[in-house]
Design a protein around this nucleic acid. Structure first.
Length: 288
DNA sequence: ATAATCACCTGCTCGC
DNA sequence: TGCGAGCAGGTGATTA
C-alpha cells in the first residue's frame, strides 16, 4: 500500500507521540516478515530514547539514543499492507499485529502487516568521523538504503536529471520512474497519476522523451505527492496513518482505479494494461 | 548493463 | 454457500 505520501503521513502522525519518549520494551510476536526480524531486536532497543522520526524513500527511520549513550536507528518498511499506529497499552493485539514498541508513558506504537512484506532492521549510527569521511547523506550505512535514488521532493530531483539518466533506455517510462534507484517514493498509484498529469504515455520508452517533458514530469510527480500528503495519503482498503485515521486522497485520483471510465479531460475511455505486472491506466488521447 | 519475471504473503472480489 | 482464479499500495533475487 504505502508509497511516499502514506509513509510520510505515518511519520507525521507518529512524531508527536514518539519523539522524546522512552521505549520500555519492544515486542516481536511474529518475526517472519520480508526478512526475519533480528531476534536481538528487543534487547537492542531496551530503554532507548526516541530522538527523531525521519523518512527516507518509503522507509521510516526511528532514531534512538541507546541506553549506553550510542545512537542507532530502526529502519521500518510498511511493505504492501503495513501500518504503524499509536494505541493504548490495554488494547489487546489482534491478527497481524506483529510488532509493538512499548513506551514508558503507557502507550505503544503497533505494527500491523497482513501480508508480511514489510521489514524491521536495526542499524547503529556511525560516529561523526565515520559519517564525515563516508560522503553519505546518512549517519549510518545500511544495505537497504545504499543504492536509493534522490528524494522526489528535494533539489536533487529535477528534469535534466531524469533526462540524462534515461538516455539509451528502452523500457517504459513508467517502470523508469518506479525504479527506486532512479527516484524514490513513487509507487504504482503515483506513477499512474503523475504520468497522466504530465501527458506522457506510460508505455513510451524512457530514453525517447524530450528534456522539456521530463521537466513537466518532475513537476507532476511533486504535485501529486504533495497533494496526497496534504490529504493524509491514499486509503484504498486498509491504510491508516500514525494516528489511526485513513487518508482521503483516493477521491482525488485522476486515473488509478478508473480503467474503463471516462477521462476527466477528454471523456475518452481510460485504457488499462499491465506493465511489470502492475496495473497501468492511461488516456490514449491525453497521454503521448 | 538492461529488462522482464519470479517470489514472498494474506485477504478480498469475481465468476461459475 | 463453496471454490478456484486473479488481483492488491513493494522490492530483492533470478533469469534472459
Amino acid at each position: 500500500m504505502p508509497e511516499l505520501p502514506e509513509v510520510e503521513t505515518t511519520r507525521r502522525g507518529l512524531e508527536p507521540h514518539l519523539k522524546g519518549q522512552r521505549i520500555s520494551s519492544l515486542i516481536v510476536r511474529d518475526s517472519r516478515l520480508r526478512w526475519p526480524v533480528d531476534p536481538q531486536l528487543p534487547e537492542l532497543c531496551r530503554e532507548a530514547l526516541i530522538v527523531a522520526l525521519r523518512r527516507r524513500a518509503k522507509y521510516l527511520l526511528i532514531d534512538l539514543e541507546l541506553a549506553d549513550g550510542r545512537f542507532a536507528s530502526l529502519i521500518v518498511h510498511l511493505g504492501m499492507s503495513g501500518s504503524l499506529r499509536i494505541c493504548e497499552q490495554n488494547l489487546a493485539p489482534g491478527k497481524h499485529d506483529h510488532v509493538d514498541i512499548m513506551l514508558a508513558n503507557g502507550r505503544l506504537a503497533r505494527y500491523n502487516d497482513p501480508r508480511r512484506f514489510g521489514s524491521w532492521h536495526f542499524s547503529r549510527i556511525m560516529s561523526a568521523d565515520e559519517s564525515r569521511n563516508s560522503g553519505l547523506h546518512f549517519e549510518f550505512d545500511h544495505w537497504l538504503l545504499r543504492s536509493l535514488g534522490p528524494e522526489p521532493l528535494s533539489e536533487d530531483f529535477y528534469g535534466d536529471y531524469l533526462y540524462r539518466r534515461s538516455r539509451g533506455l528502452r523500457g517504459p517510462v513508467k517502470n523508469f520512474i518506479m525504479n527506486q534507484q532512479v527516484v524514490v517514493g513513487v509507487g504504482n498509484i503515483y506513477a499512474n497519476e503523475a504520468l497522466f498529469q504530465a501527458g506522457i504515455n506510460p508505455l513510451r520508452a524512457a530514453g525517447r522523451i524530450a528534456a522539456a517533458r521530463y521537466d513537466r514530469l518532475v513537476e507532476s510527480i511533486q504535485q501529486r505527492l504533495l497533494l496526497s500528503i496534504e490529504a493524509g495519503g491514499t486509503t484504498l482498503r486498509d491504510f491508516v496513518g500514525g494516528d489511526g485515521k485513513p487518508g482521503y486522497f483516493a477521491q482525488s485520483l485522476l486515473v488509478y482505479g478508473r480503467g474503463g471510465e471516462a477521462c476527466i479531460y477528454c471523456s475518452s475511455t481510460l485504457l488499462e494494461t499491465r506493465l511489470n505486472q502492475r496495473t497501468t491506466v492511461y488516456c490514449r488521447q491525453c497521454q503521448r
